[in-house]
């Protein structure tokens, strides 16, 4: 993907979703959603459960295949096949550049912490092992887990697992990071350590889309908030105009539930 074309969405747009629709059986979860992510931007996706926010973020790296609309990465429409084909960019290429972190970590239990982090670069990018390990160690140091490099995931706390999962995603040197409720499965006292890592990434200019129920964190770290309800984006704006001072009735009622 050396030949970068930019679209009308603006010179800074890295990842874009246009008119995304997604149905599971007869249930339409997303009813035509547009999202753009500018380089260095952090977008917070909030909304009640069932609003489609997780499905939306999973469409952004084609983990869910949209039933309508398109995903556009650096101006290239993503095709249906895994490989690049006939001028369209494949899903594999998209995922190499757009990382994802999951609610339930999904670390590889049969691999050590270090192997979890080097797996992508070695297998997918053919990075020499020594180089991959060196980079992995730097990332593990960044998330405060260098000394756990030889541990297996089953010996880590939830917060540690999630930090390894973030390091694993970063090892691919992604241009965009998608975070899907990454603190929802954590004990309350472990949430902070994970949020701190994400905050640091935001400060370093990482482009991110974050699905979260941590309203204060979203307001703090996001440049822009999208409020989804029933498969549509209902409100879009800066944290000050949305979470902190909601004017939309549904958003106000949603946000008020977190202020107790």
């Amino acid at each position: 993907m050396t030949n970068v074309q930019q679209t009308a969405a603006g010179p800074q747009t890295v990842l874009e979703a246009r008119g995304i629709r997604k149905s599971f059986g007869g249930l339409e979860v997303l009813k035509g959603v547009d999202v753009t992510l500018a380089r260095g931007e952090v977008v917070g996706l909030i909304g009640p459960s069932g609003s489609g926010k997780s499905t939306l973020i999973r469409c952004l790296n084609m983990m869910e295949k949209p039933t309508g609309g398109s995903v556009i990465f650096r101006g290239h429409k993503i095709g249906k096949s895994f490989r690049d084909r006939d001028g369209t960019t494949g899903i594999g290429t998209l995922r190499r550049h757009v990382g994802m972190v999951f609610q339930h970590f999904n670390l590889f239990p049969h691999k050590t912490v270090l192997q979890n982090v080097t797996e992508g670069p070695i297998v997918v990018c053919n990075t020499p092992r020594a180089e991959a390990e060196e980079r992995a160690m730097a990332l593990l140091a960044e998330v405060g887990l260098a000394e756990k490099r030889n541990a297996y995931p089953s010996h880590l706390s939830g917060g540690q697992k999630q930090r390894v999962a973030i390091a694993r995603a970063l090892a691919m040197q992604p241009e965009v990071l998608l975070l899907d409720e990454v603190t929802s499965a954590l004990d309350p006292e472990l949430v902070g350590e994970v949020l701190n890592v994400i905050r640091r990434l935001a400060d370093d200019g990482m482009t991110m889309a974050i699905v979260t129920h941590e309203m204060a964190f979203a307001a703090d770290v996001a440049d822009r908030i999208l409020f989804l309800d029933e498969g549509r984006i209902v409100v879009e704006g800066k944290p000050d105009e949305t979470i902190r001072n909601p004017t939309n009735e549904r958003l106000a009622s949603f946000v008020s539930r977190f202020n107790h």
Binding site: M63, G92, F108, V123, V124
Partner: peptide, 22 residues
């Protein structure tokens, strides 16, 4: 767990790589 295949896919592995390695 399905999450294993998804995690493998998320770092760019093909179905076959995810199957074989994970």
């Amino acid at each position: 767990d399905r999450g294993q295949r998804e995690a493998a896919a998320a770092i760019g592995m093909s179905n076959w790589q995810a199957m074989r390695r994970i």
